[in-house]
Write a protein that binds this DNA or RNA. Structure first.
Lengths: 214, 214
DNA sequence: TAACTACGAGTGGTCAGACCACTTTGTAAT
DNA sequence: ATTACAAAGTGGTCTGACCACTCGTAGTTA
């Protein structure tokens, strides 16, 4: 009766029990969990079963293991999960085109949101970028990221970040004079809250990038 | 030399190799993977290592195992994935508001795309929906899903699907007369390719839903 | 011939024990 | 006190052995 159970998925039970144990023992982030051997004994299962559960949690980024040291509760805000899922979900069945399009959608929406925002304290941000642009000290990515951050949608930011990573685009390559000018105009119209102009300029920028065979 | 390697985390390697194998062998969703014993031999590792990788993927909901039968590639839209996503990614750091906003962004973009599309064969789809609306045989979700599908961005569709599930909104609840009318107008302007009008109507619909305390 | 039964092969689920590689710690020699 | 080294502890992996379950098939029966 001990070595088995009618229902399969024992390791899922262990995952659950591990979570409870972590909670009960009040293991802090970065804290150490009991050793695999000890867990096996306490939970009355084989070590391999414990390992399967631990490995799963590790792949999720919930715990971190260091050989010779032990298993530690990690900060689960790490991106492990996201990256993993992205490789599975985004793979192939999703064309590059879709990734581009969706990324652009998020960027446009951020611009639209900012145009309707009334937070004038942020003007200094765009002014600063305009200055930087004239002195060649800034990348596209920095600007766009700031735009999305300022639009204040963390989820959109996460997704955008993922897509950017996945697409692996040359977001940091050199900007041409034309491109800089478009950005300066775009940031300016952003300050003015001119949605139509901003979107129009964004589209112009897209065309510029297209011509460069991104 | 075989039983070990300088770098730890062998099972992570296996996870990666499994992904490649799935891809190379063109395993379809629902398709069967090689048995654990066969995988162990092919990848030149012990069965326990293979298991740790498989169990991890199972917890992610990427594969499904049935005792006595085998391991199968599962549809990621099922089970845990959404829950896990909601638990670890969307949770807390992401507010409901962001989920709504992002979902609406995707929906709007689909509408915009359709307005610029020139595929007139799809008019029949919207005509059909208009008829259904007048006879109360269709839900918001059906319409919106069709819009996004027709906009032909599979990635956006996937993300939208995830967000919809997470938000758990009453996408299927009864539609009021007003709401139906808005949709009919929206679908009509969609046929005409009138972007401004379509977006305006969409925003009108959002207001309607707001008033209902979604 | 058709339907049923029983059995064996194949597969996932689990366990125990054995090493290996690495880190920490404690102890002994300097 | 410092250093060097051995031992204990821990994760990483492999092997072989069962168990529980599914499924196809050979053999039996109606």
């Amino acid at each position: 009766m001990n070595p088995k159970n009618n229902s399969s998925k024992r390791f899922l039970e262990i995952v659950k029990q591990l979570r409870e144990l972590i909670h009960q023992e009040n293991v802090a982030v970065g804290g150490k969990l009991p050793s695999e051997r000890e867990l096996a004994e306490r939970l009355q299962v084989g070590r391999s079963t414990v390992r399967e559960a631990l490995r799963s949690l590790e792949l999720l980024g919930l715990i971190e293991t260091r050989r010779g040291e032990g298993t530690f509760l990690s900060d689960f805000r790490k991106h492990q999960l996201v990256e993993l899922l992205s490789t599975f979900i985004l793979q192939e069945s999703t064309s590059k085109k879709d990734v581009h399009k969706t990324r652009e959608t998020l960027e446009k929406e951020a611009i639209r949101t900012l145009c309707h925002s009334e937070n004038y304290t942020k003007h200094s941000i765009w002014d600063a970028f305009i200055v930087k642009l004239q002195h060649e000290e800034v990348s596209r990515e920095d600007i766009i990221r700031e735009i999305i951050i300022t639009s204040n949608n963390r989820l959109a930011l996460k997704i955008w970040f993922l897509l950017k990573q996945f697409a692996g685009e040359p977001y940091r390559s050199q900007m041409s004079i034309d491109e800089k000018n478009v950005w300066i105009q775009l940031l300016t119209s952003l300050k003015n809250g001119d949605e139509l102009m901003s979107i129009s300029l964004y589209n112009e920028w897209l065309l510029l990038m297209d011509r460069r065979e991104i």
